[in-house]
Simulated scan of single mutants.
Amino acid sequence: MSHDKQVALVTGGNRGIGYELVKHLALKGFKVILASRDPEMGHEAAQKLIDSNLDVSFVEMDVDNQESINQAAITVNKRFGRLDVLVNNAGVYLDKNEKLLAMDLGILEKTMATNFFGVYHVIRSFIPLMEKQGYGRIINVSSEYGAMSEMSYPGVGAYKLSKFALNGLTRLVASEINGDIKINAVDPGWVSSDMGGQSAPITPKQAAESILWLATIGPEGPNGGFFRDGDQIDW
């Protein structure tokens, strides 16, 4: 690999865990692309980090929109010519605690569109940049709600299914990729963010740290695994 700085991209990077991931990757010496679908919030978040002398730039990307993802990939290729780390962090949690078969179908469709298809399209669009140099680290921010055992209990069905599918995608892609490209899923735990609410025990900073080790694993590191706090957990 060339001596240039490694490039990392984080989706949903303007707040919560995403923002902390951007910050910590930049502190580790990465050039970081903060991707967000909201240009105003995205620019503002990136500028805050740039003002702290961190190497951060903003790219607009709506993971629910394939054209937006394609455009972002073209922009990253033009601007940086490489991508070393991809963190799929953008996600939604829209469930009320109702039964899957009784819920408004739009909730399930919207959840799958963002949490599953969004990640699928992002990986598909950006992996050629990794294949070009035969190196890449992909981290899918999942949830313990995506574990098979959680399917035995009612409630939060749309979110659970979306993360269950994301975990399956992680394993399938791991089986298909060649070269030193690795993909893993990680459960950050219950995080105090807009999504997790204020009573959650884990800070976004702690969550970021429990995720980021997967960004710098060596060639002998895990591929197609599911982790919490650095330990492998059951699918």
Rank of each mutant, 00 (worst) to 15 (best):
S125C: 15
P219F: 05
E150P: 06
S2G: 12
T75R: 13
G218E: 09
G230R: 02
V173F: 06
N97W: 09
K96P: 04
N65W: 05
N14E: 01
S175F: 00
I123G: 10
R124L: 14
I50W: 09
N115C: 13
L83A: 06
N140W: 01
D4V: 07
D84R: 06
H43W: 07
E220V: 03
L83D: 05
Y19G: 00
A165T: 00
F117L: 15
N223I: 03
T170A: 00
G218V: 06
L21P: 05
H121K: 15
Q6Y: 02
L21N: 10
G179Y: 02
G91M: 02
M130P: 00
N97D: 15
I233M: 07
N88S: 00
P154R: 11
V56G: 09
E144M: 14
K99N: 11
K5I: 01
T11L: 09
A26W: 07
G224E: 05
N140C: 07
S57V: 15
A185D: 00
D180A: 10
E44H: 06
Y145R: 10
L86E: 03
Y135M: 00
M195V: 14
S142A: 06
M112T: 14
A72R: 14
E98R: 01
I181R: 05
N53K: 13
I138P: 05
A90R: 01
Y19I: 02
K28T: 02
E40H: 03
L86D: 06
M1P: 02
M61G: 12
D104W: 07
N167A: 09
R228H: 14
K182Y: 06
M61Y: 11
Y120F: 15
N140F: 01
K48V: 12
T111S: 13
S142M: 04
Y159T: 12
G196H: 10
H43R: 14
I177R: 11
N140K: 03
P128G: 13
R37G: 01
R15W: 03
M112C: 13
M151V: 04
E60C: 10
E131C: 08
N178A: 14
K78Y: 10
I138W: 08
V156M: 08
I217H: 07
A35H: 00
V7C: 07
W190N: 15
F164Q: 00
D231N: 13
T216E: 15
K96M: 08
F80T: 01
A207Q: 06
Q198Y: 07
T203N: 08
H43G: 12
F226I: 02
N184W: 03
F30R: 02
V87D: 06
G221K: 06
S68H: 00
Q206E: 15
R137P: 13
G91K: 05
P222F: 07
M103E: 14
G136I: 09
R79A: 14
I50D: 10
K31F: 01
Y135Q: 00
I181W: 05
I17R: 07
I139N: 04
P204V: 11
V32H: 09
R37F: 04
D84F: 02
S143H: 12
A207T: 03
